[in-house]
Write a protein that binds this DNA or RNA. Structure first.
Length: 506
RNA sequence: GGCGGCGUAGCCAAGUGGCUAAGGCAGUGGUCUGCAAAACCAUUAUUCAGCGGUUCAAAUCCGCUCGCCGCCUCCA
């Protein structure tokens, strides 16, 4: 009630001295809602807190994403990781950072070697196919190109050097032709994953028969080449025999090669925190004395019926399968991007259909914005646009709160739809809205913002139908509509004239 | 067993101490329309897994219980 008063005095009688109320909102003027833009904040897995993001170097932001192993076709789990990495990449660019972004391909490991052996192809030939396919899938999903896509097999010399240097530093040891990392020599071991090493189920975790480690938790840096590997030429000479690198050292070597000792952001799936990222960091930090990354950003998993999508669970769905079912990559991107990256997504076709319907609402809006003729100006539109962009920016800067950001977009559409329907947008306002949506879509990359398609022969048919409709020649009008439908065109009559769309062009 | 995460409407989901608990999908009602399709508008949670506690005030903080998921192995 006090809020409603313009002026006057309110006397409040409290049973006690009332001190404890003084700091409450009852006695303070209403604070402004937190819309102020505070800069980018990310949840850092290392500290388990949201932190302000500032790159180490003011004119260079270094960013790395663990890429796929080149022995299978991309599944939706991969796609989610790529898209989260893409969202971070685009958000950094949108906020004015000069980003150097690398994503690797693991083309030299147990899976690729055995895959090549099974198909009778050379390792190079085998992995090249999958790398090529991955690149096509990424492009279809609208993932912005990285600065580079290094392959593990191109950096083996550096891995050998790292292993040797770690032996010299006493952080690693050689045993029966393999090199292992000695975790007892690295006091920060466990800082990222916070796995309590003394309580780990050691007996269950490592196949001790395959290794000759001093401590079961030590991990392999370089693996002694097997007879089969020697026969197929997959081995590398070192002064301690023929070996090949293990997975953890590959990522460490590549990130340091391209991005230096400490990068700004390292991202991947959260299931890789232990042991992969822990080990990657242990290698790098033992070598340089500096942490491998300042920010670790981990995306949550993609589930199917509540279980992680993986080969073990026999529930893998590939991007390709969904495209064959008629979903467009853009719809799949929208489905994967609209959930917060730190929440699991439980996949189902029904949820994909829901995403498709939701995307349709965005598409209807942009289509009408582009294709209906300009009209009179509306006084409040500029304010709505500003409000939307501010809300979008604040939401995305807050650890990529995509739900809130899309909420801002839908709120805006709800306000502007009636304005469009009433024909109250002039040319400049349309242009202003379009430019704002383009800035937002530089981050999401899901909207359809291309110019209203010019198709004279279709427009001609539509004119013909309009003429028939004016003359109330319904048979002729319907006939034209059927002819358009045969060309895959659906006509929608609105109060401001007809709008058409190409079927299936989503 | 250890460590970590999650549980908000029919479904998805934001909100993490104090304004009417965002938004989307589905449903329902309506508007527009020659018809059709689409669209547009309105509407849908006295309550946030359950119980107990802290507080003037709890979805939000604390404790316990229940349910689900991940990692600790291959897979990624």
């Amino acid at each position: 009630m006090a809020e409603q008063l313009e002026e006057g005095v309110i006397v409040v009688i409290l049973p006690d001295s009332g001190d404890k109320y003084l700091s409450t909102e009852l006695f303070t003027s209403k604070k402004e809602k937190k819309t102020k833009s505070e800069g980018l904040r990310f949840f850092n897995s290392l500290t388990r807190k949201k932190e302000m993001f500032q790159p180490l170097s003011p004119n260079r932001t270094t960013f790395y994403a663990c890429g796929p192993t080149a022995y299978e076709i991309a599944n939706l789990g991969h796609c989610r990781r790529f898209i989260v990495a893409d969202l971070i990449h685009r958000l950094l660019l949108h906020n004015g950072y000069n980003v150097e972004f690398y994503m690797n391909f693991t083309d030299l490991d147990d899976n690729t070697i055995s895959g090549a052996a099974q198909t009778g192809k050379s390792l190079q030939e085998f992995t090249a196919y999958y790398i090529d396919e991955f690149m096509k899938e990424i492009e279809a999903l609208g993932v912005k190109k990285a600065t580079g896509y290094p392959r593990a097999s191109d950096h083996v010399d550096e891995m050998i050097n790292i292993a040797h240097e770690l032996i010299h530093k006493g952080s690693a040891y050689e045993q029966h032709g393999s090199v292992y990392f000695d975790i007892s020599k690295f006091k920060n071991y466990g800082k990222l994953s916070r796995v309590p090493l003394d309580k780990i189920k050691v007996g269950m975790t490592v196949d001790l028969d395959d290794y000759e480690k001093n401590n079961p938790l030590d991990f392999t840096l370089m693996k002694r080449s097997t007879l089969a590997e020697l026969k197929s030429g997959i081995f590398f000479h070192t002064d301690r025999g023929n070996m090949r690198p293990g997975w953890h050292i590959e990522c460490a070597a590549m990130t340091m090669h391209y991005l230096g000792d400490t990068m700004d952001i390292h991202t991947s799936g959260r299931d890789l925190i232990f042991p992969h990222h822990e080990n990657e960091n242990a290698i790098a930090e033992s070598l340089t004395g500096k942490p491998l990354a300042r920010f670790w950003i981990h995306s949550e998993l993609l589930l199917v019926d509540g279980k992680k999508m993986s080969h073990d669970n026999h529930n893998v769905i590939t991007l390709r399968q969904l495209v064959e079912q008629g979903y467009t990559p853009r719809e799949i991107r929208f489905f994967l991007i609209r959930n917060h990256y730190r929440k699991p997504i439980n996949f189902s076709n029904k949820k994909l259909d829901t995403a498709r319907a939701s995307l349709r609402r965005l598409d209807e809006f942009t289509r009408k914005l582009q294709c209906l003729p300009p009209d009179l100006p509306h006084p409040k539109v500029a304010a709505y646009v500003t409000e939307m962009e501010e809300n979008f920016q604040a939401a995305m800067q807050d650890d990529m709160n995509v739900s809130r950001a899309f909420g801002a977009l839908f709120d805006f559409i709800k306000k502007v739809n009636p304005i469009i329907n009433a024909g109250q947008l002039d040319r400049d306002q349309k242009q202003y809205i379009k430019e704002t949506l383009e800035r937002i879509d530089a981050v999401f990359h899901v909207l359809k913002l291309e110019e209203c398609p010019l198709a004279p022969e279709i427009d001609k048919l539509i004119q013909e139908r309009e003429k028939a409709r004016k003359e109330k020649d319904w048979a002729k009008a319907d006939n034209v509509r059927i002819r358009l439908a045969e060309q895959g065109i659906t006509v929608m009559d609105t109060a401001k004239g007809p709008v058409w769309k190409e079927n299936g062009n989503n």
